[in-house]
Structures are given as C-alpha cells and as structure tokens.
Design a protein around this nucleic acid. Structure first.
Lengths: 363, 363
DNA sequence: CTGAAAGCGCTTACAG
DNA sequence: CTGAAAGCGCTTACAG
C-alpha cells in the first residue's frame, strides 16, 4: 500500500499530467522534435526529471516495430576468442545506442537455431553469429529473409576422416576460397572472417625466410579454418619449390599438442619447424618437444595461431598470428547498422607476432 | 511489392483468422491454458505452424509488465574471469527461459549506471552486476528499489597509498568482513562472492604445512580482494605463531610480477615462497625468479590465485586457487529468479589446485 | 469452452 | 506549436 507509488513506474501520461500537456507533446520532446516551444519543452523536461521518468523501450519498440537490440550468438563467451569479439560487438553497438542480447550455443546447432528464433521474437535489429558451421546452414537459410545476419569467424567443420602424413593437397582443391562450401549466396547472410589462408601463408613465408623447409602442420581435426591455413601454407611452399607440408591430425588440446610433438619428433626425419593450428596446440607441442629433450627454438621452431594470453607467458614466448578480434566485432555491427558495403568479406588485418619460439634452423 | 508478405510477420490475428477463432483463444493455447477444446487447439497449432507464427515477446512483455530478460553488467567480457561468469549466467538463465542483455563497463561507474538504467528501460527482470566498486554504490542506491540486483565478485578499490613491506595488519582491521564497506544494507542488493579471506587462508595453510614461514604476499595494488586475502594469510600465520607476512605492492600485470620478483629475490633475506594476488602476477614472478637464477620450486615456491588457462601451460604448472565462476553466475540467476535465500553470501566452494610450482622449502 | 472489450506505454499521422 | 484518436501485438478479466 505504502510503496504503491514506488512500484508503479511513471509513464508518459504522468509526465503529461504533471506538465499540463498531452502525451503527444511529451513524445515530441522525447524524440527531440523541433516543433515544441521552448517553454513547454522546459516544463516537460523538468517533469521528467522530477518524476524520474524513464521511457519504456518495450512499448516504443512495439510501435516502432524494431528494438535497438542486436543478437549475438557465439559458441562460448568464456573462450577468450569469442569473449573479445563480444567485447568488440558490445562496444560498437553502444556507440549506436544499441544493446546486445547474448547467447552461447556450446557449438550445438539446435541451440543456435533456438537462440536465433528467440532473438527474432525479441525483434532484434540484426543477428551476429560467431562460429557458424555447416550445420548452421539450414536455419540460416530458413530465417534468412526475416533478419539481417552476419557471420563472424569459423568453427567446426571436419572435412574428412583420414589422418596423419602426408599431404592431402588434392582434397583441398575443393575447399579453395573460390568455391567455399559455406558461402552467403543461399543464406542472405554476410561473412566476416580473417583470411586464414593469407595469414597462414604469411607465417609460412616467414618460416621459409628463416630457412625452414621441413615444416609439419599440426592441424588439430583439420576443421575448416585449418584446411584454409594448410592451403595457404602449401601454396607458399610450392612457390619456393619445397615439398608439400605434412599434416598431423589430433584433437585441439594442450595434451594433444604435447603428444603429437613427441611422436613427430621421434620420427627418423625430424622437421625443423612445427606450425600449429592454434596456440593451445603450439604450447602443448612446446612442452612435448622439451620432454623429448629438445630446446626451443634451437632444435625446433614452434609457432602458433591466435595470440592467446598464454602465448606471452610461456617460455620461450610463442611466435604466432594475431587477428584483430575486437575490430571484427565492431565491423559486424557496422555491417548490420550501416549501409557500408566495404565492411564485409575476409580481412587481411592480421598481424604476425614474432617472439622467441622461432629462429633459423640449426641444420 | 512481391515480398510484402514476407516482410510483414504474422501476428496473433493472422493465426486467429486462419483457424477461425478469436485471438483470445489463440492466446490461451499459447499460454497452455487447459480450457481449450482439443479440436480448436489442434486447429490453432496447425495454423501457427503453417504461418510460421512467432509471438512478439515485446508486446507480451508490455502487457505482462515484465520481460524474460536479465541484465548482466561486467567490467569486461573479454576477461576470462568475467567471460566464465557470463557463461554461467547465460546457461542458467536459459534453463529458466530467460535471455540476457550484456554490457561491459570498462570499470567506469558512469557506464555502469548508464547500462543499468538502459536495462531498466528494457524492463529486465533483474540485474547482475560484476565487479561493483565503491563508486557503484551511488547508483545501486538510487536504482535499488526499482530492480532486484545481485553483485558478483569484487573489483577495484584501492584502500590506501602506502606501499612495500612490512605488514599493515592494523589497517586491515577496518576491512574485516564483519564490517565490510560495501555491504548490501543500504543498497537493497545482494552480494555473491568467493570468500577470498578463507581461500587465501587455505592456501597459506598449505604453504605452512609444506614448511614455509617466510612468505611474501605480492599484492598488486592491494585492492579489496587482495586486502581480504592478506587478512586471511595473516590470520593463518598468526595461528602458527609466525611473523606477519610482508606485502609487496605493484601493478597487476605480468611485467609487474616479473620486476617485483627480481627485486624481492635480490634482498638479503629471501623469502621461501611468494604468494601472488593473481595468476598473471604469479606467472610474471616465475619469469622474474628464473631470471634471477632461481629454479622453481626448488629455490622458491610461487603460487597464484584464479586458475587462469595459462596456469596449466607455464612451466612448472602453477599452484593456485580456483573459484567456481560458472557456478557463481548460475547462483546469481537463482537468486534473482527463485526465492531461495541460501544462494546468497560468500562461497567457500573454492578449490586448491596443487601443481608443480610449490614444494617444501630447501632451507 | 469461447469471444468482445479494455488496456499495457508508447508513436504517428491528421486536424487544428 | 499542440491535441485527440488510432494502433503496435499481445493478455486479462468479464460475460456468455
């Protein structure tokens, strides 16, 4: 009874009554319409302040048929990679006065779809989907026309089942960027990506420059981005007339990297460098190499991809490639909220981060 | 013209017309009210499917005067710590059918307030605020009655300006948990925290058990949680009649840890163990110690706090304390959405993670 | 079991 | 420059 007034929040009607005008006029000052006399404007503003009135965004969204909200769907916001993208999205969205609705999929396409539909019901202005996979295609297709969507970054798509050396260059023909299997043509969604092909090529060029010719690619499960990376590496190697790079498959964990490195380095013909699909694998490989009695980079060069926080912390600090994740998030927002056509596509704004885990081969 | 129908989404009216009933009846089956005949129900459901109807959650929220959305405000979702909490919040919220609106503050109290107000305008059901500081108090107080709020985890509050050894046990009296300076009494908000005092005490007890008596606490800026930790360490040391633990202040970065360790270990009386405020500092200290020619843990034991990903990757792997961050996020949701009183308060559900950076002192 | 009506808090033409 | 009215897509009593 007593705090009845505290519970019921002031509406536009209250403001109108308090300042002796109609609600239409209140709306006008809320919308900063110029057609309001200075005096009424002042009266209304003081009433707003006095009542501590806050417009109900839901009601506004209902009548305006769109809310200032963007939906962000990622595999896992606790992964540093997606966390950074989320931070970039959120920061840029706020500049536009937008809020973001966040959902984690745990890489489950059903959850992905569920989230997307839920966000649609909330009338989000656009959808940003991180780590979309082949399986996302179906719902992206279904929901496509209903909502402006942008994909950011890859995630899982295992391309086949074969494993271990040697190269499978042929298989990769079909994966070339010129005929991507997850393109936007039938989904009405745009894709924003680092150009993994180019980035890995750049790293390979660096290794080649150092004098490395026997490089093993520690590919994890050879997911989509890994396949692209491999292709980039191969074309670089081919350019200088070196042998194709052998591929080693495994999981994508620290332990997998450790085991893989030990096995790779026990072979009769040891490579001079290991290029890992990501930093976690690379760091695992560093441990494995050390356990095999090798010192890094003297006996073996190890490089990664991503530049996670730990890359700076391990010894020696890891040479890797950094992609501008925050900027990616920001660009996804730009794409949704502005008409700029040049924000889409792949990005070559990665950066080679040379630290101490790489050097000239000793032989 | 052609895709007019595609653009205009079907509403409850369309469903009603298509199935030959009133919109009230459609609502009833949407709300799973039992008072609907099986036949009409079937008709309506098929119309819903056929039209691909999706209820407008905004309209529903407007009339029901609350949306199934929770607001989550954290310093930075790209920090692993907050990212994990966010993941916990999101996962649990979804179990309740809730979505979450995410905002990063960058530790700016003004942004915090701004976000909170914005979320309020979106009629969120509750607010979860991570890393609230002393400066958050004002807006928490103002908005308090309007919205159910729960605070999760500490963040910055420097307690004073003095630095370096020796102990400032006395100062800490005023910080004791029995008279917290950020309590919930005047804010109508609950606080969910790891019991840093207890957790650090536990780690101290472990060190003492190993035989360490000369422990330095690498405190960073001695923020609120660090002060609590220090108190926990001191009371443990006091219990066994050891000298109070010296405190070393610095920033909270890898570099700061590295420098601090070098300086600490150059002193005539070297401690046998360094207990760092967080893992990043601890990992920096490991590097510094190694640069000072010491080996870990043989010459010096170094332990951290948090269990970040890199703690497993460095060599030797870091002994640390893990708090169940996901569970924290989940509990925050429980507090907001259920009436359970036992979800609030500090949590002692941390876990000592003993790895290889700690051992008995060699002297 | 079902429907007509009122209303949630706002914005948008349309008059004046 | 200002107001009355209609309407956004839903739910909630109230009748029947």
């Amino acid at each position: 009874m007593i705090n009845r007034h505290e519970i019921r929040k002031p509406t536009i009607k209250d403001v109108a009554r308090e300042s002796g005008v109609s609600i239409a006029t209140v709306t006008r000052v809320l919308q900063k319409s110029p057609k309001v006399s200075e005096e009424t404007k002042r009266k209304i503003e003081s009433a707003i302040k006095h009542l501590n009135y806050r417009p109900d965004l839901l009601a506004r969204a209902l009548v305006m048929r769109e809310s200032r909200i963007l939906g962000l769907i990622v595999p896992s916001s606790s992964d540093q990679y997606w966390g950074e993208i989320a931070a970039g999205v959120e920061a840029r969205a706020r500049e536009f006065g937008y809020q973001i609705l966040l959902g984690n999929t745990g890489r489950d396409p059903d959850k992905e779809r569920e989230l997307a539909e839920h966000f649609l019901s909330h009338k989000v202005k656009g959808l940003i989907v991180g780590g979309a996979s082949q399986a996302s295609r179906a719902w992206l297709h279904d929901l496509g026309p209903a909502i402006k969507t942008v994909l950011v970054g890859w995630d899982a798509k295992t391309i086949d089942d074969r494993h271990v050396l040697p190269a499978l260059v042929e298989d990769l023909k079909s994966l070339s960027r010129s005929s991507p299997d997850l393109d936007s043509s039938d989904m009405e969604a745009e894709i924003l990506l680092t150009d993994d092909h180019a980035a890995a090529g750049r790293m390979a060029a660096y290794l080649v420059e150092l004098g490395h010719k026997e490089i093993v690619f520690l590919a994890g499960r050879l997911l989509r981005p890994a396949a692209l990376m491999l292709e980039g590496i191969q074309s670089e190697l081919q350019r200088i007339g070196a042998w194709p790079c052998p591929v080693w498959r495994s999981d994508e964990t620290f332990e997998a990297g450790r085991t893989a490195a030990r096995q790779i380095l026990e072979q009769s013909s040891r490579p001079t460098a290991i290029f890992a699909y990501n930093d976690v694998l690379a760091i695992g490989a560093m441990r494995g190499a050390r356990e095999a009695g090798l010192s890094i980079p003297k006996d073996i060069t190890i490089v990664g991809f991503d530049d996670i926080e730990a890359a700076r912390f391990v010894e020696p600090p890891l040479t890797t490639v950094r992609s501008p994740k925050r900027m990616f998030g920001a660009r996804a927002v730009d794409y949704l909220l502005t008409a700029e056509p040049d924000v889409k596509g792949t990005s070559t704004e990665f950066e080679l981060v040379i630290r101490s885990s790489s050097s000239c081969p000793s032989r």
